[in-house]
Write a protein that binds this DNA or RNA. Structure first.
Length: 947
DNA sequence: GTGTCTCACATCGCTTTGTCAGCA
DNA sequence: CTGCTGACTTTGCGATGTGAGACA
């Protein structure tokens, strides 16, 4: 590109520069393959070509994958929650059934008497020592459990609740989607539909281990021992990784992608599991490859080998039976040996505590035997069928308590984290679920139990994994300390892999001096910061400040360290309450910004007061008092901190005067606002009324002079020429306005007749009409046109007809102002006599009036009060129009007369019958009193608007 | 071969005192 | 002319949560 001074014409400022010719390569080759640039300059005719290659889709796919992962996570979490709640509800229903009296009676009848007596003999009177009583009770429970386990109830290997991972369920659902209803009975879950089902199992003395535990609980209750049904909810884990076999190193060498390798690893893993675990076979038999009938050698399973392309559902059943047969051979998964999902807690009255009882394995008072995590250690490689996350104990009254801490090993280190402790929302959710089943009031034993559970956590011991220390209530590692946390005093409790372990109680949180100020505290003089951290700059101002400081530091040290800005953090113990400068001579101390910091009430200076009213600063300023606006906090928008100002701080002695002045100003402002509002209301009313009047007048004029006021009618008129005599002049009446009466406003105050306008041709009304209905009027409105208008003829004819009918109105048709109308009204008021009878009689003289009924009377009432002129034919015309509607269902004779009247009045030679097919009921006739009342109301209204 | 650690990415929470045009 | 009000814009960093993969 070459720059030439000639190429910059007429720029004097540019003339100061000496332009130099330089050689520029004709083409610029961009090294970036994605952006090719060819510049086009004036001298060497190089073209500018910008080629933008669309970026690789990598990012998009990444995004999509992330979105999918997120959606899946939400789904997993949701599923986990719903499943947990359902399982809890299920346990509650079972727990309720365990109170069935018939079930109790049946169980008691099946229990040997000596076991009954074992409990009956434990009594204060026989054994005063409660410790001994406690031991006796425990022994009795042990005997009962032993009898139940060894003699009475035989546990079936299937039918109990098992834990399943999200993926397993997904696969299962995908498989059984169509057959889920037909296949109901094939489900391996034991079906207990009522207490009767439980009773059946009690009589058969057999069932799943869940049923065993439930029946044992019922038996305890029958024996009058407070017993809880304890359930470890086996909900779908929310973590995606749970139950997934990990990626094998041996898979690495495969030519396929890692993901595929992982999938295959999972598949083959499933295979290996399949051979030795009944639960796993279900999962494996439902693997997607099989579902899809994929028999490729790479994915073909050992099981699939012999089964060819059988339907998945059938396969499921077959494999299940197969596994059931083999289940008994698998000792490690024997449900009578492994930790259960349901068990019992009995309350030892003597000890005042709950004893766990495992009626399947015959354990009593051994809380550690229920956590399956220890059991799994020797079963590595198989999916867990029991995961302890939530353990709920349900009492006879249906209320429950979360007793996970009693049974879970490493509760605080592991299980609590799965429950969501410290994570926030999930823990919140679980708390809310527990709250649903918690007794609304507390018993003493609840408090005792809480203490016990708390002690369990305290005596749990140090975590064995690093993650266990994270958020542990007792222990902390310095690596897990937060930015603003420090350990003080650093008392070592022990070591974890060479790292010192400190008590959580030694952790104290620090704040920067500024942040302490926001709490109304200042760092004591001479205190050294306990920790130095990198300063954060969030707002633009702060950032600039930091940059300047950094720049200054660089220049000072000549490009030396350029170290980042560090800030010191202080502990609360290093601070003291901030004491602002007092108010002296009514002068309020202010900060650099001219206001006062008032983040906490203690920051209010001595001798001052905070008046938190909006707009009070103006008052204080007007009165000339010293004041400071109170900054009570900040809002953050657009990388800026915006101070929140709430009122002012003034000297105490000025408070009364300022507040009084403020209230006064408020009152004034309120009054002003009220007056303004009133004014607006009046204006709006006036506008409305005037608008209605104009509308009414226009309608009367066009309705009376001719009925072809609408384009529709214009059409009708022309159509009617073909079949004259059929159409009625009231075509206008079929519009909505005729059906829906607008409002009982004085409708003929501005009685402006076309004739008057014709005579004057000018004037407000003429303009108005012209403006309001320029086209609508058609020939009928042509009176506003000059005489040479093509519509002149129609106008003449029309007006001639009208004039014949309206002799008296002619002279009094000028538009009136609101004031004039009011005056008229006053005059009328003075001269008004018998308003109801008089007008009714008078119009009867005209044929049109004779046909009028209720509606007519009313209208006449109005006209009589509104205008001094009598025999107002325009009104009659209007009434006539109205009459058509109102009298449509009255005698046909009336209709004829009416037609005749409207024919004449409407200046139409076509005596058409009413075109409307509507059937309208006449308005009921009003009596004189009612009419008078209405008239009075109307006058009042008119007076109001005349003002 | 599993449990634990590490890394990458997502999400949350902290941050702490403007400017300008339009209108009354 | 003055003073008030509302629109403007949507950051960025560290801590922490989450999940996948590596490794002891």
């Amino acid at each position: 590109m070459m720059l030439d001074s000639r190429s910059i014409p007429g720029d004097s400022s540019e003339e100061d520069f000496e332009w130099e010719e330089v050689d520029v390569p004709q083409q610029i080759h961009e090294t970036n393959p994605e952006l090719e640039l060819q510049l086009e300059g004036p001298a060497p005719r190089a073209n500018i070509e910008i080629t933008l290659h669309p970026g690789t889709k990598k990012d998009d796919s990444k995004k999509a994958a992330a979105a999918a992962a997120r959606a899946e996570r939400i789904l997993r979490t949701g599923t986990h929650k719903v499943h947990t709640v359902c399982l809890l509800a299920n346990a509650r229903v079972r727990n309720k059934w365990l109170n069935d009296e018939v079930l109790h009676a049946r169980l008691l009848s099946l229990t040997p008497l000596h076991l009954h007596n074992g409990f009956a003999l434990i009594h204060k009177s026989r054994e005063p020592d409660h410790n001994k009583r406690g031991r006796l009770f425990e022994a009795a429970v042990t005997r009962l459990a032993e009898w139940w386990t060894s003699t009475f109830f035989s546990v079936l290997p299937t039918g109990h609740i098992k834990n399943r991972t999200f993926d397993e369920n997904e696969r299962d659902l995908a498989l059984r989607g169509n057959a889920i209803f037909e296949d109901e009975e094939s489900d391996d879950g034991e079906r207990i539909r009522s207490p009767n089902s439980l009773m059946k199992h009690a009589l058969m003395q057999t069932g799943s281990r869940d049923t065993s535990a439930q029946l044992f609980t019922a038996l305890c209750r029958a024996l009058d021992i407070p017993a809880r049904l304890v359930v470890s909810l086996q909900s779908v884990p929310w973590q995606s990784s749970v139950g997934k076999p990990k990626f094998k190193i041996s898979e690495k060498g495969r030519p396929s992608s890692r993901q595929k390798g992982k999938e295959r690893a999972r598949d083959t893993d499933g295979l290996s599991q399949d051979s030795d675990f009944e639960g796993a076979k279900e999962i494996n038999s439902q693997s997607p490859a099989e579902v899809l009938g994929d028999t490729s050698p790479g994915k073909a399973s050992a099981q699939a080998k012999g089964k060819g392309k059988a339907q998945p559902v059938i396969k499921l059943r077959k494999t299940k039976r197969y596994s059931e047969n083999r289940a008994s051979t698998r000792a490690p998964f024997d449900p009578t040996v492994t930790p259960p999902v349901f068990w019992t807690e009995v309350f030892s009255r003597a000890d005042g505590r709950w004893l766990p009882v495992d009626p399947i394995r015959g354990f009593v008072n051994k809380r550690h035997v229920f956590d399956p995590s220890a059991e799994n250690s020797f079963r590595s490689g198989v999916p867990q069928e029991n995961r302890m996350t939530y353990v709920v104990a349900l009492e006879e009254d249906g209320f429950g308590r979360d007793v996970t801490a009693r049974y879970a090993k490493d509760y605080t280190a592991k299980v609590a984290k799965v429950q969501g402790v410290g994570i926030g929302r999930r823990k919140e959710w679980w708390d809310s679920v527990v709250q649903l089943v918690t007794r609304p009031y507390r018993l003493q034993r609840d408090d005792t139990e809480d203490t016990e559970l708390h002690n369990h956590q305290l005596t749990e011991g140090m975590p064995t994994i690093l993650a266990g220390f994270k958020g542990h209530p007792l222990y902390v590692l310095s690596r897990h300390l937060r930015r603003e946390e420090v350990i003080d005093p650093p008392v070592e409790l022990g070591k974890f892999r060479g790292e010192p372990v400190y008590p959580r109680s030694s952790v104290i949180s620090l704040k920067a001096a500024e942040n302490w100020m926001r709490q109304g505290r200042v760092v004591r003089e001479g205190c050294q910061p306990m920790k130095m951290v990198k300063q954060r700059a969030v707002t633009i101002g702060r950032k600039r400040e930091m940059e300047l400081a950094l720049e200054k530091a660089r220049t000072d040290s000549h490009g030396g360290d350029g170290q980042e800005d560090m800030q010191g953090l202080y502990a609360k113990s290093q601070t003291e309450l901030y004491k602002p400068q007092p108010v002296i001579d009514g002068k309020v101390p202010k900060n650099d910004f001219g206001n006062i910091d008032l983040y906490v009430p203690s920051m209010l200076p001595e001798g001052s007061i905070h008046i938190p009213f909006k707009g009070i600063a103006k008052v204080a300023k007007r009165l000339g008092f010293d004041y400071a606006e109170a900054v009570t906090g900040f809002e953050f928008r657009n990388r800026r901190a915006i101070p929140v100002i709430e009122g002012i701080v003034v000297a105490e002695e000025n408070e009364t005067i300022i507040v009084e002045a403020y209230l006064e100003a408020e009152n004034d402002a309120e009054e002003k606002a009220h007056a303004k509002r009133l004014d607006q209301v009046h204006k709006r009313w006036i506008r409305l009324v005037q608008g209605l009047r104009i509308r009414d007048r226009l309608r009367r004029q066009y309705a009376s002079n001719t009925d072809d006021a609408t384009p529709q009618h214009w059409l009708d008129t022309h159509n009617a020429e073909a079949h004259q005599g059929e159409q009625q002049p009231g075509g206008y009446l079929t519009t909505a306005d005729d059906v829906v009466k607008p409002f009982h406003l004085p409708k003929d105050q501005h009685t402006v007749l076309p004739s008057s306008l014709l005579s004057s041709t000018t004037g407000d009304d003429g303009a108005e009409i012209d403006e309001a209905v320029p086209e609508r009027s058609g020939a009928a409105v042509s009176y506003t046109h000059p005489r040479d208008s093509p519509l002149h003829f129609a106008q003449d004819v029309q007006m001639g007809e009208v004039s014949a009918d309206l002799p008296s109105r002619r002279s009094n048709v000028m538009p009136k102002s609101m004031r004039e109308l009011a005056e008229d009204d006053l005059k009328r008021q003075a001269s008004e006599i018998a308003p109801s009878d008089e007008p009714e009689r008078r119009p009867r003289s005209t044929p049109a009036a004779r046909t009028m009924k209720g509606g007519r009377v009313k209208m006449l009432m109005k006209s009589g009060t509104n205008t001094p002129s009598k025999g107002n034919s325009s009104i009659e015309r209007k009434n006539g129009k109205k009459r058509i509607r109102e009298d449509s269902d009255s005698a046909s004779e009336d209709d004829h007369i009416d037609n005749a009247a409207s024919t004449r009045d409407g200046n139409s030679s076509k005596g058409n019958p009413p075109t409307t097919g509507r059937v309208l009921r006449p308005r009921p006739q009003k009596n004189a009193a009612k009419l008078r009342e209405e008239a009075e109301l109307e006058r009042a209204f008119r007076r109001a608007i005349a003002e």
